[in-house]
Lab assay of single mutants.
Amino acid sequence: MATGGRRGAAAAPLLVAVAALLLGAAGHLYPGEVCPGMDIRNNLTRLHELENCSVIEGHLQILLMFKTRPEDFRDLSFPKLIMITDYLLLFRVYGLESLKDLFPNLTVIRGSRLFFNYALVIFEMVHLKELGLYNLMNITRGSVRIEKNNELCYLATIDWSRILDSVEDNYIVLNKDDNEECGDICPGTAKGKTNCPATVINGQFVERCWTHSHCQKVCPTICKSHGCTAEGLCCHSECLGNCSQPDDPTKCVACRNFYLDGRCVETCPPPYYHFQDWRCVNFSFCQDLHHKCKNSRRQGCHQYVIHNNKCIPECPSGYTMNSSNLLCTPCLGPCPKVCHLLEGEKTIDSVTSAQELRGCTVINGSLIINIRGGNNLAAELEANLGLIEEISGYLKIRRSYALVSLSFFRKLRLIRGETLEIGNYSFYALDNQNLRQLWDWSKHNLTITQGKLFFHYNPKLCLSEIHKMEEVSGTKGRQERNDIALKTNGDQASCENELLKFSYIRTSFDKI
């Protein structure tokens, strides 16, 4: 039985969820670079991206490699990797027998973001014989899940209580170790020597080791999670996991709180800001991140802002960003909400898709409305799209047979046209069989910064309504002859009103 693990408890099935942008060198404390989270699957090609990484700022997932063999891993080693800020997950990587050479110096898994409450997941690794993470000293947050690894031993010899604050939620089941077939031998045991430290858990006094050649490092209890030197002297209180010299914040392997210019500090002093819960960055760093993602459509890219001495992905609820200094300031009234469309555009074809934009005031991208039916549609669209004030790209209304009016965009005031449909149009209306009105132009103002209007096959939309939009939106004169079809717009509506004058002759039985 794995020490510190839980057996036999019912657990939810383990679901495996399925960018080499360097964020800056980590400095003297770390020998390499800070790398983003990685999802490495199918083959070993991307694994080489770990070569210079000291910190993975995010998670590391290595999974679904069915053609790899043990010899493929023999020359692979990433000794610079010290810390993973989120979680480490391995799933069905064939041929991998140990992690001792792959990650010989991995010391800390912070667990800032977890995989279903777990910071370390080893699942269905069919050839893994031992973990071998002999320098792993601290899992700051989260638990361990090690399950269905039929060859995995050296679990009962690990004292997880020396690595985690609590072992109650560890789930370590259905491994070879369960069948008591392992016969784990710690260093020196074969020669009758006791080389590794022994600890007591559940009444068992057991030597602690990761492999037959690597003991588990056990520091004096007084050192807590700070770690200790090879001689057993406690590291500085700002260290986490390990250090090369005692009581020196510049000799830590990793930091308990924050890293700044080669030393570990309790908090980031001005003019620095907390970033990702582990390091200090200056304003320029946060500003660069903001600008890199301002026009990016890459998933996970955030326009970072500053709030409460932190550089964070977005302002919290009730705050909006001051564009001059990136500071989050309290909103006066309802907060603006910028919604970034991942692929640059979004099609609204149902109430469900409209709900995804609920509360958005600025759309960074283009909207395509293609709704053919739905219950209580006008009210639903207004509830979900009615706060949109600005669209950076274009607005396209296409084959939306259920629409009679666009009044559900009740606050839309600006279409920038930074991206144009077919390279020309910022407003595009095609084949809307029941569209009769755009907006009530006596109450609604709309500016279209650039781009043209396109109207074709809107049989109940009168040309007068379209011409009014040209005047109000500032697009009059931009359109070419064929942009607004004269014969297919309003051709099934009563669009022309003329005053009919009647004269009559009164007659009676005795007068003409």
Results as ranks from 00 to 15, higher is better:
210 W>N: 04
248 D>R: 02
33 E>W: 09
315 C>Y: 00
258 F>Q: 12
256 R>L: 07
98 S>I: 02
112 S>G: 06
275 F>N: 01
99 L>P: 01
41 R>S: 15
302 H>R: 06
309 N>C: 03
279 R>G: 14
213 S>R: 09
247 D>F: 09
174 L>T: 12
202 N>K: 11
192 G>L: 14
302 H>W: 11
302 H>T: 13
297 R>M: 09
299 Q>F: 07
157 T>S: 07
194 T>L: 15
52 N>V: 15
159 D>A: 06
193 K>I: 08
187 P>H: 04
254 A>T: 04
153 C>N: 02
257 N>M: 03
233 L>E: 10
128 L>N: 01
188 G>W: 09
333 G>Q: 06
242 N>K: 07
293 C>I: 06
249 P>K: 00
142 G>V: 01
221 T>E: 15
240 L>Y: 13
161 S>G: 08
194 T>P: 11
241 G>T: 11
62 I>M: 05
57 E>H: 13
176 K>M: 11
155 L>K: 05
320 T>W: 09
45 T>H: 07
276 Q>I: 04
241 G>F: 03
320 T>G: 05
116 F>V: 02
88 L>H: 00
139 I>W: 00
229 T>K: 05
244 S>N: 08
90 L>H: 00
290 H>R: 05
90 L>K: 01
62 I>P: 00
205 F>G: 10
214 H>G: 15
330 P>N: 09
294 K>W: 15
144 V>P: 02
228 C>N: 04
82 I>G: 05
188 G>L: 12
86 D>W: 02
229 T>F: 15
205 F>A: 06
324 S>F: 13
330 P>V: 04
310 K>Q: 09
218 V>D: 08
328 C>Q: 01
110 R>K: 07
137 M>N: 10
127 H>A: 12
40 I>P: 00
158 I>S: 05
110 R>M: 10
152 L>T: 03
227 G>S: 12
184 D>V: 15
139 I>Y: 01
59 H>P: 11
304 Y>H: 03
192 G>S: 13
241 G>M: 02
99 L>D: 00
273 Y>D: 01
78 F>Q: 02
189 T>I: 12
199 T>I: 06
167 V>D: 03
304 Y>D: 02
136 L>V: 06
299 Q>N: 15
303 Q>A: 05
204 Q>I: 03
275 F>I: 03
53 C>D: 00
280 C>F: 01
210 W>C: 09
206 V>S: 13
224 K>V: 08
184 D>A: 12
275 F>C: 02
258 F>H: 04
236 H>R: 02
149 N>S: 13
122 I>L: 07
222 I>P: 11
203 G>K: 07
191 K>T: 15
31 P>R: 02
280 C>H: 00
225 S>V: 05
317 S>E: 10
82 I>M: 14
222 I>N: 06
333 G>L: 03
38 M>H: 10
180 E>R: 12
109 I>M: 03
257 N>P: 00
87 Y>C: 00
271 P>K: 03
201 I>H: 14
97 E>K: 04
90 L>M: 14
120 L>V: 06
318 G>E: 05
79 P>D: 05
240 L>I: 07
210 W>I: 14
145 R>T: 04
177 D>S: 02
313 P>D: 10
161 S>C: 05
49 E>M: 08
129 K>E: 14
149 N>T: 09
108 V>W: 04
148 K>D: 09
268 C>L: 01
130 E>H: 10
171 Y>G: 14
325 N>L: 05
193 K>Q: 15
333 G>N: 06
253 V>M: 05
194 T>S: 10
260 L>C: 01
140 T>Y: 06
28 H>T: 08
118 Y>N: 03
139 I>R: 01
37 G>D: 11
246 P>L: 03
186 C>R: 03
119 A>M: 00
87 Y>V: 00
250 T>G: 04
235 C>D: 00
43 N>C: 01
32 G>L: 12
104 P>N: 00
148 K>V: 08
284 S>N: 13
289 L>V: 10
151 E>K: 14
66 F>W: 14
325 N>T: 04
188 G>I: 14
